[in-house]
């Protein structure tokens, strides 16, 4: 057998890094890259639509330039301030509420000693994560419908409180939406934090117990500091998406009710309504452009900030 000769040939080829050696890898990348081109990069080129006066008859890329006209129209509306405020404020609430809740639940799960119970809790908490927003909207409707809803009929009525028209009164939604979102997301997030907690070496806890640290001290001085990288990563990902609202949550759950737009309209629902319902591509794309660019700047700058303070936890 002349293995040695063969190996030599291979190393020779490798060192040349010739395309004759690696072309199959390139071929393997082609389907995936082709999809990213269609799904991600062509729409990116389409961002220039925000600066055009779209005319379908001559095609989107042949339509004349319009400068900042679309943006002027957008910011002249009352909606502009509301949708940006709602998007950022809701996301900020979601980040804080969800993180605190998920980390707490993960720490509680870590205290469960019985494997069976742990599994039951984990799978039940994950249930809402598995269903679509449309089904969530059905469930919320079953709870909040003015005449047949569970809350009005089975909770408020026995208490002697007058039924509330939830889908018409905007002031309740800044509480309803974070609750629904928490219900849907907490399972997902707590599985992530739980995975990171069980990754902590038990040596730390044993040493702490020897030093006489109680449960509370262990949580403060061991668990939380050691899952900090995960918290920071999730935080960064969430902050990077602070200008993107969960369309399903804000469109389906409030039933697209016009009366409560002041507390439920966000950039994504605005863009959808402008594009599909009104057909106003100019304003829709201007809002979308803002969203993309602000989101990008935000990811880059938070990451830069984290890299300054704590380089190991930066995303890239």
């Amino acid at each position: 057998m002349d293995h040695s000769i063969k190996t030599k040939q291979i190393t020779k080829k490798k060192s040349k890094k010739s395309i004759r050696y690696y072309w199959p890898f390139l071929v393997m990348c082609i389907p995936g890259l082709a999809y990213l081109l269609i799904n991600n990069f062509l729409p990116l080129a389409g961002l220039t639509i925000a600066f055009r006066d779209i005319d379908y008859s001559i095609g989107i890329f042949n339509s004349p330039w319009a400068g900042f006209k679309n943006f002027e129209f957008l910011f002249a509306t009352d909606s502009a301030w509301i949708i940006f405020r709602n998007t950022v404020a809701y996301n900020a609430i979601f980040i804080v509420v969800n993180t605190v809740a998920a980390v707490t639940v993960a720490i509680l799960l870590n205290e469960v000693r019985k494997k069976v119970m742990l599994r039951i809790y984990q799978s039940l908490v994950l249930l809402p994560y598995l269903i679509s927003m449309v089904v969530v909207a059905y469930i919320v409707y079953a709870a909040l419908a003015a005449d047949t809803g569970f809350v009005n009929q089975s909770i408020l009525k026995p208490l002697g409180i007058k039924p509330i028209n939830w889908y018409i009164e905007p002031q309740y939604w800044p509480i309803i939406l974070p609750l629904v979102n928490l219900w849907k997301q907490v399972g997902f997030l707590c599985v992530i934090y739980f995975a990171s907690i069980i990754g902590i070496s038990s040596d730390y806890f044993e040493a702490a117990i020897l030093d006489g640290a109680g449960k509370w001290k262990q949580i403060i001085h061991i668990t939380l500091p050691l899952i900090r990288p995960t918290i920071i990563t999730m935080f960064l990902l969430a902050v990077g998406r602070i200008f993107y609202a969960d369309f399903g949550l804000f469109y389906q759950v409030p039933m697209d009710s016009g009366m409560i737009y002041s507390t439920t309209n966000v950039i994504d629902t605005y863009v959808y309504r402008a594009l599909i319902k009104i057909g106003d591509i100019g304003m829709a794309s201007a809002a979308g452009f803002f969203q993309s660019v602000l989101g990008f700047i935000l990811v880059m700058s938070t990451n830069l900030l984290v890299r300054r303070v704590d380089s190991e936890n930066a995303l890239f």
Partner: peptide, 17 residues
């Protein structure tokens, strides 16, 4: 690949493409 996770065109361009 990583870049696509950071930045996207949003609904309008995606819909039109």
């Amino acid at each position: 690949v990583f870049f696509t996770m950071l930045f996207n065109g949003g609904l309008v361009p995606t819909y039109l493409i």
